[in-house]
């Protein structure tokens, strides 16, 4: 069903989506398919899909539109799952699950240095420069204070959009806050640690998106290698081209299997790092095989090159990720110096 949706409703308009953004109609379709609160139990207006199946959903959508896949991940995993974890805000979940409104998570978990959003008493102020979907209706904002950090439902006073490297169907930019918060808008205390563990724990979903993108890039390159000739031979006839494509295919298949097996958080983080690296490599190979045509947006190949790097930047901080895993699997003193 998801494959059919993605193929019929996303494939041909993927380039248009990149230019015009994710329309309300697409949001509605994602909602009808139950994907915007996919992993939430039915009692919480979710679809009750298990996490592995959801990973497969993301991978399938990413093959046709990486932006739509990331949007789905953002709404389901970073917004609705967190709202659900906070055990509050049923009405917000319903709105996002129905595609009626959109949400975003404003955090600095993947940054080398914290962003300056603070809460003092009930005053929320400051800004975050790296917000995906800053024009979302609902912002879940990680705000720091002297002791615990809080997750707050807020609305920015100002947003400034920047052209992102990838996922151009989704806005990106700076969000600034200055407002007095009502008590019931604070939905989590000590939010930092909960968000961090949620962010790491769902790393496999990022791996799924990266694998979908890789698969699509490599398939496009294989197709092209069967159409394009150089030196009176099809490109796939050249040994280095066939070898690199076969190697890519093999690595994607291996990682898909690993995706289904990753049980513990360390495995998921490592899988994410490897899948992201593979997606960058696959996109570079695909672009290269398309030669000059790959460098222009018309064939939709350069998009993989931008998207794979942007996904990496959005979802991973190599130093933090490796540090977390090495402390777990080597020693708490690992990665110190």
């Amino acid at each position: 069903m998801i494959e059919q949706f993605a193929k019929e409703e996303l494939e041909n308009v993927a380039q248009k989506i990149e230019k015009e953004g994710i329309s309300k109609d697409i949001r509605k379709r994602l909602a009808e398919l139950g994907l915007l609160a996919a992993t939430l139990p039915q009692s919480e207006n979710g679809s009750g899909i298990d996490r592995r199946s959801f990973s497969l959903v993301l991978m399938t959508i990413a093959k046709y539109s990486a932006s739509v896949a990331y949007f789905t991940y953002l709404q389901n995993t970073l917004v609705n799952e967190i709202l659900s974890k906070a055990q509050k805000r049923k009405e917000e979940i319903i709105k996002i699950a129905s595609g009626e409104s959109t949400g975003t998570l404003v955090h600095d978990l993947n940054l080398n240095f914290p962003q300056e959003v603070y809460i003092k008493g009930y005053e929320l102020y400051g800004s975050n420069s790296f917000v995906i979907l800053p024009d979302a209706d609902l912002h879940l904002v990680l705000a720091r204070s002297e002791s615990p950090s809080y997750l707050i439902m807020a609305n920015p006073v100002k947003i400034e959009k920047k052209k992102p490297l990838g996922f151009r169907a989704i806005s990106f930019g700076v969000a600034s806050y200055k407002q007095t918060i009502e008590e019931d808008r604070i939905i989590l205390k000590d939010a930092d640690s909960l968000l961090k563990s949620h962010f790491f724990d769902t790393s496999d979903q990022i791996a799924a998106i990266a694998l979908g993108m890789s698969e699509s890039a490599v398939e496009k390159a294989i197709e092209y290698s069967k159409e394009r000739k150089a030196f009176e031979s099809y490109l796939y006839e050249f040994q280095p081209i066939s070898a690199v494509l076969t190697d890519m295919k093999g690595r994607i298949e291996e990682m898909k299997k690993a995706l289904m097996l990753s049980e513990v958080v360390q495995d998921r983080i490592l899988l994410k790092l490897n899948a992201l690296e593979l997606s960058r490599l696959a996109s570079r190979v695909a672009l290269q095989i398309h030669g000059g045509y790959g460098y222009l947006e018309d064939l939709g190949v350069e998009r993989y090159y931008r998207d794979s790097m942007f996904l990496t930047m959005l979802s991973s901080n190599y130093i933090k990720d490796i540090k977390t895993v090495s402390k777990e699997i080597i020693s708490p003193d690992a990665f110190k110096i």
Binding site: K163, F172, T312, S316, N317, Y318
Partner: peptide
């Protein structure tokens, strides 16, 4: 990019 991460955006 691996070092700078998302701060390289834009």
């Amino acid at each position: 990019f691996k070092i700078v991460g998302i701060e390289a955006s834009g």
